[in-house]
Amino acid sequence: MKRMLRLHRIFVAQYMKNLMEYKVDFLTGAVSFLLGQVIQIAFLGIIFSQIPNLIGWEFNEILFIYGFSLLPKGIDHLLFDNLWSVGYFIVRKGDFDKYLTRPINSLFYVIAEKFCVDAFGELAIGLILVVYSVIQLKLTITWYMIPLFIVAVVFATLIYTSIKIATAAIAFWTKASGHITHMFYMTNDFSKYPTTIYNKFVRTFITYIIPFAFTAFYPASYFLTGENPLFCIGGTVVASVLLFIVSVWIWNRGIKAYESAGS
């Protein structure tokens, strides 16, 4: 574990050097992302200027859920972004051999190699929204809320990462699976809004099949209402651990089935 952390630091330092070569380009990207989120929130503001609440949820509560959803998404983006490249081109180009011939775990190596600094845009907006809405709603914060919040965010992140690991691993059989990751990943947008607005099919799907509802709405609703802690926080932990075990199993099966591609 200690060795892994040390290696991770070295990888991050290498990657930062790489990034600094295109400073302006990277900054433009991060600013654009912020701008996109601001426009989305302005749109929500326009909608709420016309209605008192969205089937029982007021504007600041929606902002809290929206902000919460960006935190696990941002952490996953920051640390585990390289999984996209596995599905899109690393396997197809035959570059995956590199990861198998080093004396470290292949999954760890893939993950540690890249450190996606533009995720700080997501994290900043998420934090601002959460803090702002907590103040606006005058939520009382009890001491155990803070560790619970951290637990919820960490395990919610694991849901994102597990889905990416499982779908990226499909590339070991099919050579490319980036588009499959994309399809599953896009489902996460459903979690930005209360699940009560969806019909039964969608609700079941994002709770039990691809449990993205546990990355935002369920944990966030616990912090907003204080109801159902067992389902909202416990469910997040159980769903993410189950998903993680399955995805690592798929990854390891994939490594066994992997045949090098390209020249």
């Binding site: 295109y22 302006v24 380009d25 990277f26 433009t28 990207g29 600013v31 654009s32």
Partner: peptide
């Protein structure tokens, strides 16, 4: 390099 400018 146009990555950032393209997102913008």
């Amino acid at each position: 390099n146009l990555w950032g400018a393209d997102i913008l």
